[in-house]
Amino acid sequence: MNPYERLPDKAFWRPAIADRSMFQIDELWQPKFALRPKMPVATFGSCFAQHIGKALKARDFNWLITEHSPLGMKPGSAQEFNYEVFSCRTGNIYTTSLLRQWTSWALEGKAPPDECWEASGRYYDPFRPAVERDGFESRDEMEKSRQVAIDAFCECIKRSKCFVFTLGLTESWVNATGGYEYPMCPGTVAGEFDESRHLFENQSFPVIRENLVASIEMMRQVNPDLKFLLTVSPVPLTATCSGKHVLVATTYSKSVLRAVAGDIAAERDFVDYFPSFEIINSPTFRGSFFEPNQRNVTAFGVDFVMSHFFDAFEEKIGKNQKGRARKRQKPAKEKRADEVCEEELLDAFGRRS
């Protein structure tokens, strides 16, 4: 007798993978804790995180929104201005250091850096460069809008029962003088690049882990019962400044992020990891969920991931809620999966043959 003789089919490649259609692969995730329909759930992170919030809403779960669009704004316009893309109007939070930066502003009373980007009489927020497509009318308006988002982020931390965060990038741009981070390289979406002040950093495992742990601990101090659900974006990098081929850079980035998420989830019972990255990127699924550009995830792929997500909660939430969990989100036929993503704008700087 040996330990392998007592293992279930899911522990072996042949019965779990090779002998099945890729659409029959199951038991990929056993949630640590229940996600019940009435539980307020906050969602933040990289571009792919947007789909979790939409899926929660489509299945009548309680997606927590603390910053709503102005009264009368049409849904399409609201999304263009980053309303109800995440739980509040932070824009994409690609790195764990950006998450720590936002958490410090929200919970420790730290004031954001006194920096504003101006172009053609319009004002842009360096920390949310794309939330206003054409910029703000004044610096004052920009600062007030950012403070609203910070206050709303604070409310998300205090009111949510589950905080979902999707890790997206290891590559980052920092202000060398102030020691703070931008979500995008200055001079891409807005602002002007200064090589003496704006430095590229490709973050390592210890740095990413430290920032995520610090963020979690800060949040738990004000909301001791808060649980965390981590995912890793399956979307490859649009561009890399690492000097490596973009394929190699993507593999490094996603591997490190996956390792950090798994490491933290393994040692904390209030932190879980959902394998959206594996579902989309595993060779088992043969690239079936990517658009022809091999980067953007199709609407069908998003729905496939979300189906695994909600199906896994069936045993946790009880039989009376199964129908709600199984309710499928209708994939958008015309829209790509990544709908609001500043990083995609980097594609404009690539040379064309």
Results as ranks from 00 to 15, higher is better:
D151C: 07
A152Y: 08
A152W: 01
F153H: 09
F153L: 14
F153Y: 13
F153S: 07
E155S: 14
E155D: 13
C156S: 12
K158Y: 08
R159S: 04
S160A: 12
S160C: 15
S160K: 05
S160F: 04
S160W: 07
K161A: 14
C162F: 03
F163C: 10
F165T: 10
F165K: 01
G168P: 12
G168Q: 11
T170P: 14
T170V: 15
T170S: 12
E171C: 11
E171P: 13
E171G: 09
S172V: 14
N175A: 14
N175S: 13
N175K: 09
A176T: 13
T177F: 04
T177S: 13
T177Y: 10
T177W: 11
G179Y: 15
Y180L: 08
Y180Q: 06
E181P: 15
Y182A: 05
P183L: 03
M184D: 01
M184H: 11
M184T: 15
P186F: 02
G187N: 04
G187Y: 05
A190F: 12
A190E: 12
G191P: 05
G191I: 02
E192N: 06
E192D: 14
D194E: 14
D194W: 10
S196P: 15
E201Y: 11
E201F: 08
N202M: 11
Q203E: 15
S204Y: 08
S204M: 06
F205L: 13
P206C: 01
V207M: 11
I208N: 02
R209K: 11
R209M: 09
E210T: 14
E210V: 15
E210S: 14
N211H: 14
V213N: 01
A214C: 13
A214F: 02
I216V: 13
I216P: 08
E217C: 09
M219G: 04
M219P: 13
M219Q: 14
M219V: 08
R220H: 03
R220I: 03
R220L: 11
N223K: 05
P224R: 02
P224I: 15
D225V: 11
K227E: 01
K227G: 03
F228E: 12
F228D: 03
L229K: 02
L229M: 09
L229E: 06
L230H: 04
L230I: 10
L230P: 07
T231I: 11
V232P: 12
S233A: 03
P234Y: 00
P234A: 05
P234Q: 06
V235G: 07
L237Q: 00
C241T: 11
G243H: 07
G243E: 05
G243V: 04
K244Y: 02
H245E: 06
V246W: 00
V246H: 00
V246N: 00
V246R: 00
V246C: 00
L247I: 01
A249W: 00
T250L: 02
T251I: 04
T251F: 00
T251G: 03
Y252H: 05
Y252W: 00
S253L: 02
S253G: 04
K254G: 01
V256Q: 03
V256T: 02
